[in-house]
Write a protein that binds this DNA or RNA. Structure first.
Lengths: 110, 110
DNA sequence: ATTATTAATCGTAATATTGCAATAATATAA
DNA sequence: TTATATTATTGCAATATTACGATTAATAAT
């Protein structure tokens, strides 16, 4: 199969999984960290910084953009990428709610 | 390939990616939510609750256990699963640090 | 116009993931 | 001991992911 049965789960569960999935590769983690750190965030800079091939970085950027976590602006032959702060905040709401769950009663049931 | 070049990234980046990856499937999200919600957390209960086949649930539980986020205790023929609260907290430290990043200066560089 | 720069896309190989039927393993009950 | 209940493991098919070379597209510089 290789394909998740998303119809069996709630929208909230699928949303969390989608966001988590995109964070599930260290290259995308590194890209996002770099975008938070650097103001000038050209694609080529990320290729140099991270060390994967240009098409590979481009592909990871596409996934991040597709989820709305970053945006890219064409500047001549370059493309400037940066965090989509509004959507990042929205993502955080969902993820934090999941991560901040607490065991209701007895700490260790088993 | 299909295989991440982990050696190019920091331990912290790889750790975040590993945790995120395990949250990247709605079934594992659902399992964890159920374990937070219910005290008696038998494997069979999860099969009924979630609706995937028993081997599939068992496999997802294995991954969660392998990362240390849950623990399982044998009780007769059943196995009681629950959140490993200590490790969950440790995971949260790493994930929150990543999620709480803030853009340093100008909100939208592009 | 030609050439250089930069990034996206295509095609493909290698590997990983998901899901389940069949089976095995383990412990309890009769 | 034999049957029953519960979970783990194995094997396999379908699909997804990762990575990159080759190419294309688009703009800028000469």
């Amino acid at each position: 199969m290789g394909l998740a049965k998303t119809e069996m789960f709630t929208d909230a569960q699928n949303e969390i999984a989608l966001f988590a999935k995109v964070f599930g590769h260290p290259a995308r983690v590194a890209i996002l960290q770099q975008l938070f750190k650097i103001e000038g965030c050209y694609c080529g800079d990320l290729v140099n910084e991270i060390g994967l091939a240009q098409p590979t970085i481009s592909q990871h950027l596409k996934e991040l953009k597709h989820l709305g976590l970053i945006k890219g602006n064409v500047e001549g032959t370059s493309v400037c990428y940066c965090i989509n702060t509004e959507n990042w905040s929205k993502m955080k709401v969902a993820m934090l709610q999941f991560l901040n769950q607490d065991v209701s009663q007895n700490k260790d049931c088993c």
